[in-house]
């Protein structure tokens, strides 16, 4: 009984760790893509958003907002609450 409960908790933990890796990869691509995609042309040709250079706005400001929203969505919809102590807190975990 106990083993099965732990398996289930660890499966959840492993999935959430993979989600973390996925988010970090996405974050890096967004950050790198906008910064060096838009920022590598000469400064005279830059366009501006809210007064900031467009590469910076999309990469760092918008990118940050997008990551916050993603983290909220991921945590609210995919993260599962599990007991952290080894003694089962409610019997529901042993079913299934």
């Amino acid at each position: 009984m106990k083993e099965r409960q732990q398996d289930r908790r660890f499966r959840i933990a492993h999935r959430e760790a993979l989600i973390g890796v996925g988010l970090a990869v996405f974050n890096f691509i967004w950050w790198y893509g906008f910064a060096y995609g838009l920022g590598s042309k000469p400064p005279e040709e830059y366009s501006y958003v809210f007064g900031l250079p467009a590469w910076f706005f999309y990469s760092c400001v918008l990118g940050f907002v997008v990551m916050c929203i993603l983290v909220i969505v991921v945590v609210k919809f995919w993260f599962v609450e599990v007991p952290l102590d080894d003694e089962p807190e409610d019997e529901g975990w042993d079913e299934q």
Partner: peptide, 30 residues
């Protein structure tokens, strides 16, 4: 601005550390 760009690489720490160590680390530590 190049240094601000560099500093923003730290946003990842906000979620990455807790997601990776996450529940497994808390369970094992207990």
């Amino acid at each position: 601005f190049g240094w601000v760009l560099l500093a923003m690489s730290q946003v990842v720490t906000g979620y990455f550390v807790l997601m990776i160590l996450g529940k497994k680390f808390a369970i094992m530590a207990r």
